[in-house]
C-alpha cells in the first residue's frame, strides 16, 4: 500500500466523520478517545500492517489489539473502510443484535483480534500473540493502542515486564496520550508522569511523538520495525476529541456522543457530510 501522507490524512478525516456520525446515531459511546486515536489506526491499517481484509484469518498476518476498547468506534470505522465488513453496519453501533458491541468482540467482528473493554488487558494479550508468532517463526508483528488513563492499571506494568523479559521485539505499543480520562485530567486523577521514563526503566525502546501527525506516526513505526531485542512503545501526544471544536480537549466528551446540532456543525466545520443512510 503506497498511500502517501496526504492520502492518509484524507482517510483519517473521513474516518472522523464516520466516528461522530455513528456515535450520534448510537446516542451513546466514547467520542473523545476515538478521535484522538484515529490517526494512529489510519497509519496502521492503511499503511503499516500486513493484512488482507478479504481474508481476515490470513496466516502470518500482523495483528492489532485495541487495549483501550472504549475507542471501539474508531476501530469499527477503520475496519469497515478497510473492507472487513459492510460500512452499513456502522449505523448499528451499540444496538441490540449488532456485531458492533459497545466494546470490541472478536467473535462478532471480522478483523477484531481480541475482545477488549476492561482496561489493562490488551498488552498482555498482545504479548501472548507475539510470543506465539515467535514460536512459529512467523513474521507477524503485533500492535496495541493503550489509553493514558489505562496506564494506571497494574496489569499494564506486569505486561511491560513480560515484553521486556521475553525480548518481544515483534510488538509495538502506542499510548494514546490525550491527557484526559473520564473523571478529569490524568495528572489530577492519578498522575502517570514521567511516563517515558517509566517505560524506559521497564526496558522498552521509547519514542515520543505527536500522535495526530501522520508523518510522525509513520516515522515512529519505521523506527519500531528496526528495533530489535526489545519492545517499542510510542508515546503519542494527542488531543482528545481531535478534529472538531465541539469536543476537542474537553473532558465531557470522554463518554458522550455528539448531539444532532453538534454533529451538523462538526460536519460543516470539517467540510464533510454524512447522512445516517450513508454510513
Amino acid at each position: 500500500m503506497g498511500n502517501d501522507i496526504k492520502e492518509l490524512e484524507d482517510i483519517a478525516r473521513q474516518l472522523r466523520i464516520d466516528i461522530i456520525t455513528m456515535l450520534n446515531k448510537a446516542k451513546s459511546g466514547h467520542t473523545g478517545g476515538s478521535l484522538s486515536a484515529i490517526d494512529i489506526l489510519t497509519c496502521l491499517y492503511f499503511k503499516e500492517m500486513n493484512i488482507d481484509p478479504a481474508d481476515p484469518d490470513k496466516p502470518d498476518r500482523d495483528k492489532f489489539v485495541l487495549s483501550k476498547g472504549h475507542a471501539a468506534p474508531a476501530l469499527y470505522a477503520t475496519l469497515a473502510r478497510a473492507g472487513y465488513f459492510d460500512k452499513a453496519e456502522l449505523a448499528t453501533l451499540r444496538k441490540y443484535g449488532s456485531i458492533l458491541q459497545g466494546h470490541p468482540d472478536m467473535n462478532l467482528v471480522p478483523g477484531v483480534e481480541m475482545s477488549t473493554g476492561s482496561l489493562g488487558q490488551g498488552l498482555s494479550a498482545a504479548n501472548g500473540m507475539a510470543l506465539a508468532a515467535k514460536l512459529d517463526g512467523a513474521p507477524t508483528r503485533v500492535y496495541v493502542i493503550m489509553g493514558d488513563g489505562e496506564q494506571q492499571e497494574g496489569q499494564i506494568w506486569e505486561a511491560a515486564m513480560t515484553a521486556h523479559h521475553y525480548k518481544i521485539d515483534n510488538l509495538c505499543a502506542f499510548v494514546d496520550n490525550n491527557g484526559l480520562q473520564i473523571d478529569g485530567e490524568v495528572e489530577k486523577i492519578m498522575g502517570i508522569e514521567p511516563l517515558a521514563d517509566k517505560w524506559r526503566a521497564f526496558g522498552w525502546h521509547v519514542i515520543s511523538i505527536n500522535g495526530n501527525d501522520i508523518a510522525q506516526i509513520l516515522e515512529a513505526l519505521d523506527e519500531a520495525d528496526r528495533t530489535k531485542h526489545r519492545p517499542t512503545v510510542i508515546i503519542a501526544k494527542t488531543v482528545k476529541g481531535k478534529g472538531f471544536s465541539f469536543c476537542a480537549g474537553k473532558v465531557k466528551y470522554h463518554g458522550v456522543p455528539p448531539s444532532d446540532q453538534e454533529l451538523e456543525e462538526a460536519l460543516k466545520e470539517i467540510g464533510g457530510s454524512a447522512t445516517p443512510h450513508q454510513i
Partner: peptide, 8 residues
C-alpha cells in the same frame, strides 16, 4: 491474559 493471547 497472556495465555488468552496464545490461544487467540
Amino acid at each position: 491474559t497472556t495465555a488468552a493471547g496464545f490461544a487467540a
